[in-house]
Amino acid sequence: MERAEKIGLGVATAGHVLLFGLLSAGFLSTPNPLKLNSPPMDVSLVDEVALKSMAPQVSTQPPPPSVAPDEGPTEDAAPAPEPAPAPEPTRAPPEPTPAPPRAAPREAPAKSREKPAPPKKAAAKTPAKPKPAADKPAAKEKPKPQKSKPAAAPAKSSAKSAKQSDAPAKASGSGKADKPRGSLLGKDFLKGIDTSADAPRKAAPAPAAAMGPAQKSALDAEIRRQLKPHWRPPSGADADRLVTLLEVRLDKSGALVGTPQVIDQQGVTASNRPQAKLHAERAIQAVKLAAPFRNLPPEFYDQWKWLRPLRFDARLNR
């Protein structure tokens, strides 16, 4: 080994040790660039992507309290209503006048036995009582209690006449009020029927507010109809194969929010490549000219606030 080589070996070793030391001390290290302070981001995959469920929504409100009649006297025995409905329709109309004298004396004692205020009771009971009286036949025949209500409200006499049928039963039942009630109807048979006395129930969001396929196609057709006058696709070789997909945001009034963006372009071939850019520009132009869009149903704003993809092909028919 010559002298020059010894010098070279020494210098090379020293240089390597120096380089190694510098690298170990972080001399050439790059500071970690990934010190990003990014707050977590809310990602919702549902909102604007899927159509809404068509299933009816379950109401969160409690059902109305039972409004079934629980007056003792009227629901006496099971056999009592049985004979009543048959004669009622025929008997009630022909004898309106004899009914009050007959019913009043019978009812008055019955009531007076319960409470010592006969005139007030009679006045208070009479509007209330016809309801169950009418409800019973209604429950058996058809579920519309409204028919008897107007009859009861205007004239006491007509209500009483309607009550004639159960009057005998009441007369016998009023004496033994502690008898077990034999009504065939459950206490809650009116559950779920909207009664005017109940607190106004807010109607659950109807499933119709969600968009069905038919409404969606109608909405698409409406948007296309408004776009069509402004859509002039470029012409040229294979230009009718081009399809441009845009993303358009609309506000509630149908006006554009931002600029339409090209998401994708399909059908680009070698021969129509020169037209592809023009196609996309014309599509954006058509949207800009057609905006603001009219006649879009505001209740479906969720469906048309973000038109993606808005498809432009040669004839704008899909």
């Binding site: 020059a4 080589e5 010894k6 010098i7 070279g8 070996l9 090379a12 070793t13």
Partner: peptide, 21 residues
């Protein structure tokens, strides 16, 4: 490889000195 690198540089230095001289 580190030894090879040291040897390379030793030869580079020694060679350039010898050859130039």
């Amino acid at each position: 490889l580190l030894l090879a690198s040291i040897w390379t540089w030793a030869m580079i230095i020694g060679f350039s000195v010898t050859l130039r001289k």
